[in-house]
Amino acid sequence: MNCQQINKYILPYCDNNLPPELVRQIDEHIASCESCANNITLTRIENSVLHNLPALEPRTDFTNDVMQKVFVTTPKDYKLKSLSKKALVTLIPIAAVLLVFIATTMPNFFNLSKISSPDISQMEVKNYAPRPQTAKEPSQESLRQTVDTGQKIADSENTAINEPKEDSVKLADNNNVFMANIEANNFKEEAEKIENYSSRAAKLKTLDNNANKIEISLANIPSDYILANVYNVSNQEIAYQYIDSNNNLTLDITLTKLETDIVEESQPFSISADMASQDEITSTCNISQVNEYSLELVNDADLYLVNFISSMPLEELIKIASSVTIK
């Protein structure tokens, strides 16, 4: 047996875990090899140190400290968790049966629970009547003013944000809605559902021949609002729903493509906060503590009506709406 082989067996040799024959061979070797003998001696010393590492104990009042913390911090929570382990197996099936029973016998129960996350399409039908054809004209006129010169925007500087124009007042009086019923050519089929709900930007992919990609972004939206749903209301309408779960608020945005033949120039356009506050307000109203705000945007010769509905204060709603851009 050479030194390399001995090296392989040193640990079990020192722990007396080798068969007698191997032990005899190693003994013969180390009798004539000082290096291996030293190696074994040092291994034994290491063993004695390792096996006799001093027992360590924390302070004597350690247990009391732990028990105090256990008692103070978690008794209720602990009871619940300990209950859950044993009782969940029983409780979950019972809860499931109850849910099924409620769902089958009281279908309205679940409808009532939708208050916190209303369906935008239902809201429109319920709260607002269809917009008459005449209501479209002021919006188009407003758009022309914005796109063509921008000068007329300045002319209307004195218009207060929350003072609706005459047209708007008429619209509100007549219980009219602002969603225009306009047919578009470029929207096809339905948009793909947005995958990343945490993103602030809602990306809408259309399936038209040109594979256009429309993106809405809201620069001023508070961080608490998370994009929760994207609806495809129709071929021309996409609705986005943001939810602020902390304050139980919702923000519903509808993007509707309008007729484009009124727009002559094809240039990217985004509306600034100032512009929105002065001229782009097509209408505002407050029905049952729900504020609504609409504006029109142009993107690549396409005209879009963007409608905001939320229970948040109107001023805050306008601030968010004014930061919307379409790419």
Binding site: A55, L56, E57, P58, F62, T63, V66, M67
Partner: peptide, 10 residues
Amino acid sequence: VNRYKGSVFS
């Protein structure tokens, strides 16, 4: 706690 405080602390 009493049984394991030594080993845990070590």
